[in-house]
Design a protein around this nucleic acid. Structure first.
Lengths: 119, 119
DNA sequence: CGGATGTACAACTTAATAGTTGTCTACATC
DNA sequence: GATGTAGACAACTATTAAGTTGTACATCCG
């Protein structure tokens, strides 16, 4: 029943929404408050907070605390698993992506993150 | 209201389910019939067909027709947009991923697929 | 032709998602 | 201490998703 709770599923699910992707893109430029993230959208503050909770649960965003602000900060490492899954399987599909996979392996070695069990 | 209908969202949403990822992994080894894909799971044939419809709608799988079988075939190109989005934004986050992005650019040039509008 | 097999379609249930409004707390300023 | 601002939490609605059962259709085989 609970279809989505492994790490990869949470990551992909978090990315499967244009609003959240735009928020991540915004956060790529630096930390932002909730209201700053809200600005570009025609959504209530509460809706933005919900999206942030999804991103937080997926480990893509962490939040600080500064006075009444809760600055949001990006956690890009969590994306490694996602890219890795895709690259790993695409490598099987088309041999010419071998180099990509190797490149990612190298990146992971030089930038150790978490585990990547098959599937 | 209709939160999910752009291409990237469909791709990520399709990947956000462990069953579907396992099906894709299976298809990576070669075309499979619906029943073959069903085998590893404790799910009805109809449930598998539904997952296949999601994968089809996302453009990740296409289906042939051979007698009463409907062989499923992988369409890996659709994953390029997903990897590209991640790589593009992660590049901003951490400078050291510049090489990855360049590598993906090179791959895309040597393996032309579709467009990748930002977000 | 008749039965078995492979897959699809429809209706239904349950649960999750995305959004809303309304309210509450925390801090800052005056 | 009152007011304004930042953000969270709760309750509700509507839509979508994942699963089921039941059935229909098409193709192969005897």
């Amino acid at each position: 029943m609970t279809m989505v709770d492994d790490e990869l599923s949470l990551t992909f699910a978090a990315l499967a929404d244009p609003t959240r992707r735009a928020m991540l893109a915004r956060l790529a430029e630096g930390d932002r408050t909730v209201n700053e993230l809200r600005a570009p959208f025609d959504l209530t503050q509460q809706a933005i907070s919900k999206h942030l909770k999804v991103l937080e649960r997926a480990g893509l965003v962490s939040r600080g605390r500064s006075a009444q602000y809760r600055p949001c900060h990006l956690e890009p490492e969590r994306l490694d698993g996602a890219v890795d899954w895709i690259a790993r399987h695409r490598r099987v599909w088309t041999e010419r992506f071998d180099q990509l996979d190797e490149h990612l392996e190298a990146l992971r070695r030089s930038n150790p993150t978490k585990e990547h069990p098959p599937t």
